[in-house]
Simulated scan of single mutants.
Amino acid sequence: MEESRLMKYVIDENGYIVRSYNPDDPNIPDNVVDAWEGSGFFKPRYDRERGQWVEGATQEEIDEILKGINPIDEPVSEVEQMKEQILDLQRVCNVLMANQS
């Protein structure tokens, strides 16, 4: 029988990961669970009754995570872009002038 090459995890009583093991580690305990295959989870939780990994995060938690990962930026006006460029130039000039002293 072929051994799984997936990471191995020790999980707590709620199914959340408390420790991970590389599959090549010779000291893996017997009570580990193989990692999930396929799509990732935001907060993986092992459902012992179903014998599979499930999403442990609520929809609100997922929305909050996604907000930080993929923020929707308002388009920047040309004037705002020019203000940023002027500030960058001022910073460079300040550094150059400070190095001349």
Score class of each variant (00 low, 15 high):
residue 66 L to P: 00
residue 64 E to A: 14
residue 57 A to K: 05
residue 59 Q to C: 00
residue 41 F to V: 03
residue 35 A to D: 15
residue 61 E to L: 03
residue 42 F to V: 10
residue 82 M to I: 14
residue 91 R to W: 01
residue 65 I to S: 02
residue 89 L to Y: 12
residue 88 D to K: 14
residue 33 V to M: 06
residue 66 L to I: 07
residue 82 M to S: 11
residue 53 W to T: 09
residue 43 K to G: 04
residue 33 V to I: 15
residue 42 F to G: 03
residue 79 V to R: 13
residue 80 E to S: 11
residue 55 E to K: 06
residue 86 I to C: 06
residue 63 D to M: 03
residue 55 E to V: 03
residue 50 R to V: 01
residue 71 P to Q: 11
residue 63 D to T: 07
residue 60 E to G: 00
residue 90 Q to F: 03
residue 32 V to P: 01
residue 70 N to L: 11
residue 42 F to E: 11
residue 87 L to F: 07
residue 49 E to Y: 09
residue 84 E to M: 11
residue 87 L to P: 00
residue 79 V to P: 00
residue 55 E to M: 05
residue 79 V to L: 12
residue 50 R to L: 11
residue 48 R to T: 05
residue 72 I to V: 15
residue 47 D to V: 01
residue 68 G to V: 06
residue 68 G to N: 14
residue 61 E to K: 02
residue 70 N to I: 11
residue 46 Y to D: 04
residue 66 L to K: 15
residue 79 V to W: 08
residue 86 I to S: 07
residue 92 V to P: 00
residue 43 K to V: 03
residue 71 P to N: 09
residue 85 Q to D: 11
residue 86 I to L: 14
residue 39 S to A: 14
residue 52 Q to S: 07
residue 36 W to F: 13
residue 46 Y to F: 15
residue 65 I to K: 12
residue 83 K to R: 15
residue 73 D to T: 09
residue 67 K to S: 14
residue 39 S to K: 13
residue 59 Q to R: 10
residue 67 K to R: 13
residue 80 E to T: 12
residue 89 L to F: 10
residue 90 Q to G: 11
residue 33 V to P: 00
residue 60 E to P: 00
residue 41 F to W: 04
residue 39 S to W: 01
residue 45 R to V: 02
residue 40 G to N: 14
residue 79 V to G: 06
residue 51 G to I: 08
residue 48 R to C: 00
residue 53 W to P: 03
residue 62 I to K: 13
residue 74 E to Y: 04
residue 45 R to F: 02
residue 54 V to M: 08
residue 78 E to S: 12
residue 77 S to I: 02
residue 81 Q to M: 12
residue 52 Q to F: 00
residue 70 N to W: 11
residue 52 Q to Y: 01
residue 87 L to M: 13
residue 69 I to E: 13
residue 77 S to E: 10
residue 60 E to L: 05
residue 78 E to Q: 12
residue 50 R to D: 02
residue 55 E to N: 05
residue 79 V to Y: 13
residue 42 F to A: 09
residue 82 M to Y: 12
residue 51 G to E: 04
residue 83 K to T: 10
residue 38 G to K: 06
residue 71 P to M: 09
residue 69 I to K: 13
residue 37 E to L: 08
residue 47 D to K: 04
residue 81 Q to F: 02
residue 46 Y to M: 04
residue 56 G to R: 09
residue 61 E to M: 04
residue 59 Q to T: 08
residue 49 E to D: 15
residue 56 G to F: 08
residue 40 G to S: 14
residue 49 E to H: 12
residue 38 G to E: 03
residue 91 R to N: 14
residue 51 G to F: 02
residue 65 I to C: 05
residue 77 S to V: 05
residue 44 P to S: 06
residue 67 K to V: 01
residue 83 K to E: 14
residue 92 V to C: 04
residue 74 E to S: 08
residue 50 R to H: 04
residue 32 V to S: 13
residue 51 G to S: 08
residue 60 E to V: 08
residue 91 R to M: 08
residue 85 Q to H: 09
residue 39 S to G: 09
residue 92 V to E: 15
residue 35 A to L: 01
residue 32 V to Y: 07
residue 48 R to L: 05
residue 44 P to G: 04
residue 71 P to Y: 09
residue 35 A to Y: 00
residue 73 D to R: 12
residue 57 A to T: 02
residue 35 A to H: 08
residue 41 F to D: 08
residue 52 Q to W: 01
residue 35 A to S: 14
residue 73 D to Q: 11
residue 72 I to K: 14
residue 80 E to Q: 15
residue 65 I to L: 12
residue 46 Y to P: 03
residue 55 E to I: 02
residue 90 Q to K: 13
residue 76 V to S: 08
residue 40 G to P: 01
residue 83 K to C: 08
